[in-house]
Design a protein around this nucleic acid. Structure first.
Length: 419
DNA sequence: TCTGGGGTCCTAGGACCC
DNA sequence: TCTGGGGTCCTAGGACCC
């Protein structure tokens, strides 16, 4: 059996840990640049604030109902996520972290007599030790566990085992086809056109038709609904095959020099992520675009291949700036920039190029490692490339005016407690 | 005025080869 | 009028996820 542990309104719940006064109050968390709503507490959902809605569209509802608003605080959420995962691992040896707020557990080896009782204990323990509420869904496959979790979220006890039901088909019949994991807007439209409207309909759909219209991906979902495991299980996630750092800019940029600072800054962040997973990239792609929400949006991207795979900031930044030079068109008001690293390989697999200066590259390696160490220990960039500009001149940095303190990862942001 | 960010996998189609 | 067949590799784009 597979269980899915899913944190309830994760980001909002993280904010509540340190703000107990917000218990039972509406809370929302905004995306980067305070653009969209990306997390809502149950109370905020009840006010009709939908997922992904631009903040400015709900400002009135927010003010009227005294909704607590937070800019996103990823340092905090990541830390809470790690604590929750650690707790889960104490309960079950086979755990696959799926996203920042979800983990799959294989329960088979635990030989449980009562899976629901196990889920209940786990749920209570996470709430007590980490401070966040979770829901647990149980089923024979990941897809069924996902469905069970959706039902668990509605249930008071926050637990649901679809495999323990007398008539699971009856449950599937109550689940709309677009609510199934892996069936998005596009596919559900196709399915509805041929009267496949519920998870039950999909379970008994004809294999040939599904393969033809939804590809093997859709067919796997159908098999999972039938109880056959088609999606693998990974306890240790693979290294990323691509690494992307992209941002909406806090302000419009037309000036090439300012734009190049932003590109250099984000390219440098991307190379840091690359080094963190001990990898090298062969291709650097730079993206720039004007606002998506005005007519004649310009979107330019250029790929630059490196002579040999690299992960040091100077090389990555240099390539990203070369991409920018090729993608840049004068006179446009740019609102987004991004740097994508691809064709990623492990440091171990590096083949030295014919003209590669090994001594020089080793020196650079040590330098990068030291810089990363300093920045990691300080938990903020203390050392960075001049090409990224000085912090005080980075007017393009995204705004996060309502960010809560990073309680668990910055000593100087711990609240003062008067005794 | 203000509209997120970071991933994965699959397919179709073109280029190229023998 | 009829214009091979089968394979690989690469890329762009679509669809999906949280």
């Amino acid at each position: 059996m597979i269980a899915l542990v899913d944190c309830d309104s994760f980001y909002a719940s993280c904010e509540r840990i340190f703000r107990p006064d917000l218990k039972d109050k509406p809370v929302i968390v905004l995306s980067n640049n305070d653009g969209c709503v990306i997390a809502r507490s149950r109370e905020a959902k009840a006010l009709g604030i939908s997922m992904g809605v631009p903040y400015f569209k709900v400002r009135e509802v927010v003010t009227k109902n005294n909704v607590a608003v937070f800019s996103s605080n990823y340092a905090l959420y990541q830390d809470i996520s790690s604590r929750a995962l650690e707790t889960i691992r104490n309960f079950c040896p086979e755990v696959e972290p799926y996203s920042i707020d979800e983990s799959f557990l294989i329960l088979d080896s635990l030989r449980l007599r009562d899976e629901a009782a196990f889920a209940k204990r786990l749920r209570q323990f996470i709430k007590r030790s980490v401070g966040i509420p979770v829901s647990v869904g149980i089923g024979q496959t990941k897809t069924l566990a996902k469905i069970a979790t959706k039902i668990a979220k509605q249930a008071d006890e926050g637990i649901y085992n679809i495999a323990a039901q007398e008539d699971p088909d009856c449950i599937l019949a109550s689940m709309a086809v677009e609510d199934i994991w892996g069936i998005g807007q596009h596919q559900s439209k196709k399915l509805r056109a041929v009267r496949i409207r519920t998870a039950r309909d999909l379970k008994y759909a004809e294999d040939g038709w599904i393969k033809k219209h939804l590809s093997v991906v859709g067919l796997r979902t159908v098999y999972e609904l039938r109880g056959f495991r088609c999606f693998g299980f990974k306890e240790i996630p693979d290294n990323r095959k691509s690494i992307c750092v992209s941002r909406s800019l806090g302000t419009y940029l037309t000036n090439y020099n300012e734009l190049s600072q932003a590109v250099a800054f984000y390219a440098s962040l991307a190379s840091e992520k690359l080094r963190a997973q001990r990898s090298l990239a062969n291709v650097v792609t730079t993206y720039i675009s004007t606002s998506f929400h005005v007519p004649d949006c310009y979107w330019g991207s250029k790929r630059v291949c490196l002579a040999t795979p690299k992960n040091d900031s100077p090389s990555i930044v240099r390539a990203a700036l070369e991409g920018l030079r090729l993608a840049y068109i004068e006179g446009k008001k740019y609102k987004r920039v991004g740097v994508l690293l691809s064709e990623i390989s492990s440091c171990k697999e590096l083949q030295k190029g014919l003209f590669c200066d090994i001594k020089q590259s080793k020196k650079l390696d040590i330098l990068m490692r030291e810089i990363d160490k300093i920045n990691l220990e300080a938990n903020k960039p203390l050392v960075w490339l001049a090409a990224g500009g000085k912090p005080e001149s980075q007017k393009w940095v995204t705004s996060a005016s309502m960010r809560s303190p990073r309680y668990t990862s910055y000593w100087d942001e711990l609240p003062t407690i008067k005794v």
